[in-house]
Design a protein around this nucleic acid. Structure first.
Lengths: 257, 257
DNA sequence: CCTTGACCCTCACGCCACGTGAGGCCGCAA
DNA sequence: TTGCGGCCTCACGTGGCGTGAGGGTCAAGG
């Protein structure tokens, strides 16, 4: 086998669109150490190094710290194929995120034209904007995360006002779900799924970034733990918790498509 | 007129998805100074402050420094509507950027499977990845930029190898254009526009992020300055420069749709 | 009226991911 | 052999905050 060609720092920098200093830095901290050095001490990157660099830039682009990126890549179980496939899914999620931002911008435009907005409109100004939602979603895929820690961190800082507001919001959602149920709609009707999505959004805003997968987990919890079920049923008839849980699963399937 | 309601730091922080410390920081550096203070010194943000905060986060999301964001927003000529509309266009551009990254990830997957790649494939690993391309594009829209300064900065660091490679790449593109012209295709044929796009991409990679608008500017330059025209015509028949320029404009219209 | 607890304030130091020289060696073309 | 561009290693600087420390504020409850 002929020895594969190598690349010098400046070449790698140009190809990947980063600075030479950045590559030096990655070398210093052991994140990307070139496979070889020439006799005179020049860094010589091979193709595997370039592939690793791509991974690093992907991770960095997801908002991970370099330390986190290093840990992910150095896990012996790390699978390049899996990582790239996950990245592809994340990029598709990213596209939806972009759509959300477009809606936020539209909200800004509407605000300017109507020259009037109440509190809920203010929230809409920033929907699809919260970076933490996105970052944590990245962590979820790169493993190594405990989403509930985020929740604990946030809720510790909530005051009475917030808790009251949270409760009102939850009750409003349960009431909406009860109305849908009373109207005789199925749990996989658009109305029911929209309620589920509103519920997920509420969780995300107040507690932790709630992916559809985690939402389904919550649904199971609601059904399994009777304390939850009873609390929810209070706002409608018995069976509301079951109905909501079914809606959540239907919504998850809708999102998956 | 009833006095509009105001928001406290923690409220703003939660609504916008940033930390309280961040808001303090923006206050400190004069980027976002709340409209009022209560008697006890509490920050009181009004709705205009929230709208400005949205602008700040948008700018930050585009990779501008806070100083640059401040300058843009404080220009007396700054138009919120225009900025939001520009942002919307940029988000659409962003979506295409995401597509490019997806292709880059595909290149990574291909690399893993074929277990073989030559130099050009290496480049493809990072296409759609270069953050500078995107940042500078943001600057272009937020005004206040000199894209050619970027070019000067880059080219100063090119060595002979690079210049030779650049020249080869340019010549290959001109040759391709000449072939299309000889084949009798129109300047707005798909083939011709693809050559134009390849030309734009080449400029972007070697010199400065070349938006379609700037590309059209280049086309005009090629036609106006006979030194350019003669240099290009060398690779085909007389009129190649004119043909390429027309293709560039056709390509720009295609991209606009 | 006083306490308690969740909020708010202002310093001020720390950290990460590099940017930016300074000072000096390598290699190849003139 | 002398440039000249590129490479190397320190080493300090910077932007955008995070994270306490030390201390006022305000509404609810005892």
């Amino acid at each position: 086998m002929a020895p594969r060609r190598t690349y010098r720092v400046s070449e790698v920098a140009r190809i990947a669109g980063v600075s030479v200093r950045t590559l030096h830095h990655y070398d210093e901290i052991g994140l990307l150490v070139p496979g070889q050095r020439t006799d005179s001490g020049y860094r010589a990157y091979d193709q595997d190094d370039l592939l690793r660099l791509q991974q690093v830039l992907i991770g960095r682009g997801q908002g991970l710290t370099l330390e986190e990126v290093r840990r992910s890549l150095d896990e012996p179980s790390f699978d390049h194929r899996q990582a790239l496939l996950a990245q592809k899914r994340r990029l598709q999620e990213h596209a939806r995120h972009t759509d959300a931002m477009i809606r936020a911008v539209d909200a800004g435009l509407a605000f300017l034209e109507e020259d009037q907005g109440d509190i809920m409109d203010m929230q809409r100004l920033f929907d699809g904007f919260d970076p933490s939602r996105y970052e944590a979603e990245a962590q979820e895929h790169w493993g190594d995360t405990d989403a509930f820690r985020e929740s604990a961190k946030r809720t510790k800082r909530y005051g009475k006002d917030e808790w009251r507001q949270i409760q009102q919001e939850q009750e409003a959602i349960y009431a909406q779900a009860a109305a849908v149920l009373r109207a005789g709609s199925a749990s996989d009707s658009t109305e029911a799924m929209d309620v589920a999505e509103r519920h997920r959004d509420s969780i995300s805003r107040w507690f932790y970034p709630c992916s559809v997968a985690m939402h389904v987990g919550l649904a199971e919890l609601y059904e399994a733990d009777h304390r939850f079920a009873e609390n929810i049923d209070r706002f409608g008839s018995a069976g509301l918790a079951t109905f909501l849980s079914a809606s959540i699963r239907a919504n998850a399937e809708r999102q998956a498509r």
